[in-house]
């Protein structure tokens, strides 16, 4: 999910950039050079995986996957998502330089929040773990939508309806993202549990 260039107002863009810079600073501090290779390659796989379109009824949606990136990288998710968004900007011109900060906040804040809220639970091999894994996906998309809507509404009151429409359009994405994250976490727990507890 990202907001295009040219829509948001200057103050919103600047506060987004400032927040993203702080988050990136914390994230980079938590990544030593031993873990940067892993963060980079996970960012690359996130970039590739977010190109996947999953069918829903007659249409299709593409996955955000920021929740699971947060689960795997913690604070490191902020620089990883920043880099992935920068690559999207340079390679596809989706988003750009001025919105890089805001878009990083939109994607990365939910990732970090999901990591702290559900991370400790999502590793459990029972029903609670499954619920937590679902919520990682569901809530991270929900939060992304809320932050995007807030950014639009802070720009101008005329965007209220646009923001509402964007949030409404993401409700099916939340459910699908929750399901996919749930299965994905179950899979990782079976195949390579060490990925999930990187502390």
């Amino acid at each position: 999910m990202h907001i295009s260039e040219g829509i948001l107002s200057g103050p919103v863009l600047l506060s987004g950039a400032a927040l993203a810079a702080v988050g990136t600073g914390i994230g980079l501090k938590s990544l030593d050079y031993d873990r940067i290779a892993r963060a980079g390659i996970l960012a690359a796989s996130f970039f590739v995986a977010s190109l996947i379109h999953v069918p829903i009824g007659p249409s299709s949606v593409h996955l955000l996957l920021n929740g699971i990136v947060g689960l795997l990288l913690g604070w490191g998710a902020v620089p990883a998502l920043l880099v992935a968004l920068l690559l999207q900007g340079v390679l596809f011109q989706f988003g750009g330089i001025t919105t890089l900060g805001v878009n990083t906040v939109i994607m990365a804040a939910p990732a970090v929040i999901a990591y702290y809220l559900f991370g400790p639970w999502a590793r459990r091999p029972d029903a609670i773990g499954m619920a937590a894994a679902f919520l990682v996906g569901f809530c991270s998309v929900l939060l992304s939508g809320v932050i995007a809507a807030a950014a639009l509404m802070l720009t101008g009151e005329g965007f209220l309806e646009v923001a509402g429409l964007i949030l409404a359009a993401h409700i099916p994405v939340m459910v699908i993202e929750g399901i996919v994250t749930l299965f994905c976490v179950m899979f990782l727990r079976k195949v390579q549990p060490s990925l999930l507890d990187h502390r």
Partner: peptide, 29 residues
């Protein structure tokens, strides 16, 4: 791909496999 749980599970495992392979590769790199 269809709108059903099997599809979502397949994609989830596929993404999971992508992460696993990425992590293994990262270690080697």
């Amino acid at each position: 791909p269809q709108t059903r749980i099997h599809t979502y599970r397949t994609y989830a495992y596929l993404i999971g496999m992508l992460f696993v392979r990425a992590a293994v590769r990262a270690e080697r790199v």
